[in-house]
Amino acid sequence: MCDTCGCNITPGNEHLVSNDGKLARTPDGKKAVTVLRSLLSENDRQAIHNRGHFDKHRVMAVNLMSSPGAGKTSLLEATITALGSELRIGVVEGDLETENDAQRIRAKGVPAVQISTGSACHLDAHMVHDALHKLDLASLDILFIENVGNLVCPASFDLGQHRNATLLSVTEGDDKPAKYPVIFRAADLVLLTKMDLLPFLDDFDPGRAEEQLRGLASKAPLHAVSARREDGMEPWFDWLRAETEALQRRVAAGETLRPAVQPDGARLHGLEREPDDRATGHLMAPNP
């Protein structure tokens, strides 16, 4: 990782690596090792590997996140109906149990792999990698990774996706971005879903939801949709088309796409020098 360029040194930890760092040596001769590596660096390494797979096959990978029941699978069904003849779509479904969602997707004529996480509250890069072995990436343009319904844990794990899309259904409450800042801050696009129900809900204000999103310094586009009524979906489809084309261009130029905001470890670009950066930590001048 970045022991050289210092990109992981923040105002909060720079005292550790200065010459007189408080942990530079211990009085009783213990070895003090500075690491400054993400707690999830193994996951991050696998995520980079996954992203390499996606890039090689020019598949744009979108991580879909939301609370349970916000309409991720319904959104995918409507998306496949509309774009299925234009873009080749595949889906990885994450749930604690059941094949239900994968079956719904397969019924639309699209390949889907179900990951049953058991009790795990999120997908990680290793689970997604295992699922990729069951998909023919060469025959896809877009891969949706439908994360476990959860507004907390999925945000911390890079899966190798190019983009994060986060759903907020109008039945949930317009203050969700302020309550769950980590996941909404990570979004490259936010969809307000189930807009057909808005007339029945007097306490959800889409304007307030957007205000709370901007409060997280998010520049992500926000679109209001109803997947069931197939209403307001065009901006979402246009975003998917544009991002898929953007990925093709980037890969052709030898680059990739990354979510605008990433979990700490993945952002630290030292990780890109895999795999020989398996640093064992930098010794902080112990007494010989």
Binding site: G12, T26, T34, S38, D264
Partner: peptide, 12 residues
């Protein structure tokens, strides 16, 4: 947004 392993002290 840090989630870092900063340092370790080891007994050799």
């Amino acid at each position: 947004d840090e989630m870092l392993l900063a340092s370790l002290e080891l007994i050799e």
